[in-house]
Amino acid sequence: MKKVILLIVILLSIKYNGLADEPYWAFNTAFGLEFFGTSHKDLGIIRATTLNEFRGKTNDIGSSFNLSFMPEYYLTNRFSFATGLRVSRTKSNYKPGIGKFLYFKSREDGYDTYYYRIESIEEKSIYVGIPLEFRFTIRGSHRPTPYVRLGATPSFRCTTALMVKEYHQKKSQSSFTGINTKKIPQPDNFIAPVYFAAGFQFGHEDAYCVEITFPYIVEGGSISGLQDCGNLGGGLQLTYQFSKIKQKD
């Protein structure tokens, strides 16, 4: 956090010459996709597989797709900050490391224990957050225009959906109604991804931005109840910027 503040102070102290300094507003619509590494978590409800010590696929990739609407305020042509609203949908899976199925412990009833064979568990969550981002345009007179962006998006979990795919050896076998998903842990309610991005802006009045996000670090909590998510990820974001409004004196 201290490094972030220091970077902002450094950027604010830099003077720029030969540029229009009238502040103005712009509005952004952005689509982003981030990926991050995950590793198995002992859920306590999946039986270990034979061929390795772990109870599911050791490593997997989780993803987060987000949609943002953010007003952006340009202090100068080079430096701006943005905030707004971001809706993110995260996704992670739990699959066997090898073989076709896992034994899922659904419930215990006295002396009886019920396992179900499953192919996978898929988890999708929706987070709503308020991004706070700072952008620094590196070279304003060139097209396309390179820039860097630093941001954080404190987000709250709205909902999580779980889909357990049963294993059926025969097509005629009907679905089981006994799988109890209550024991599957949920993702954390609050997360705060912190990220750095670098990209290019095409155009000026109506602009398109393409950027690569790296690193994408999820702080504050885990976005998956199924897997231990590696903090470090990366991704891609596309932004459409429109409606530049100059501030009237």
């Binding site: 034994y103 215990e108 002396y111 009886d112 224990t113 019920y114 396992y115 179900y116 064979r117 089981f176 006994g178």
Partner: peptide, 15 residues
């Protein structure tokens, strides 16, 4: 602990 184990609603073994 001794359990009767059912897999896919079918009795399988005792643990």
């Amino acid at each position: 602990r001794v359990q009767n184990l059912y897999v896919d609603n079918k009795y399988e073994e005792a643990i």
